[in-house]
């Protein structure tokens, strides 16, 4: 079976800065794939390029059989792929329920939107409790849940999560990881960028290790946990 997402020689540049230097990877339906590496390795640039938030300098991205390399961001949620960005980026001046409604923006069918509400409010009862509050007044953990919930509202086949545990208390981090396993059970395919390497490898099927814009190691989660590449990537070595 062809992978759900496959990426060939992806490059991302910001003016003279080369953030991603031609990487290849793939994600199969039903997998959780971790992307690991030190700060500045190019993980966010990679995910942002997949969804069109930053331009692809060269390379091709194929999702679900279509070449989506230069598709604008607004076309990807309807196609079944979305990103919960690093730093959460909830709409602080919109209420919790308005944020979720925006997540379902591309769904035209009323019943499907209602099912999405139902699912997200079941996963995160706290969001239901706070539905009329401005998102900007939520705690960091609640904002993260909202960011993930908002992404889920579009019913994605592939969900990209960029550092969902960043800056959260350990107990909340546990909740986020529980949620990720739950999503897998619901049939969502996940790409997970994490600083929390051990937790990420615990939950992931496979992983890629990035360093300075290149993939320096790849393999199953258990292979990676034993490899030296991971350690040296975090220590900043090549």
């Amino acid at each position: 079976m062809a992978p759900l997402l496959s990426v060939q020689s992806l490059q991302v540049r910001y003016g003279p800065i080369e953030a991603v230097l031609g990487i290849d990877f793939e994600i199969k339906e039903g997998e959780i794939v971790a992307f690991l590496g030190a700060n500045g390795a190019g993980k966010s640039s990679t995910l942002n390029a997949l969804v069109g938030l930053v331009p692809v300098a060269s390379g091709t991205v194929t999702f679900n059989g279509s070449d989506i390399t230069d598709w604008p961001p607004e076309t990807l949620a309807p196609a079944g792929m979305t990103l919960s960005p690093e730093g959460r980026h909830v709409f602080g001046t919109l209420s919790v329920s308005e944020n979720l409604l925006m997540g379902a923006y591309s769904i035209k069918d009323k019943d499907a939107v209602n099912d999405a509400w139902e699912r997200v409010y079941t996963l995160f009862p706290i969001l239901h409790e706070r539905r009329d509050q401005f998102a900007g007044t939520l705690s960091g953990g609640q904002q993260q849940m909202l960011a993930v919930g908002r992404a889920l509202m579009s019913n994605p086949r592939l969900l990209l999560l960029d550092e969902p545990s960043l800056g959260l208390a350990p107990k909340i981090v546990g909740q986020i990881f529980d949620l990720i396993s739950l999503l897998r059970e619901q049939g969502v395919t996940l790409a997970l960028v994490e600083q929390n390497v051990s937790m990420a490898l615990n939950i992931a099927d496979r992983g890629y290790v990035l360093s300075s814009g290149k993939i320096v190691a790849a393999g199953s989660a258990s292979e990676l946990s034993q490899s030296d590449a991971l350690q040296s990537a975090y220590l900043g070595g090549e």
Binding site: P72, E74, M102
Partner: peptide, 24 residues
């Protein structure tokens, strides 16, 4: 109105609004 809410969302963070499927 959904469009009005989308305009407020886009005013706050245009990139993320587009990510939701809101057409620029």
């Amino acid at each position: 109105q959904k469009t009005g809410i989308a305009m407020r969302a886009a005013a706050e963070d245009f990139g993320v609004a587009r990510l939701m499927g809101i057409r620029a």
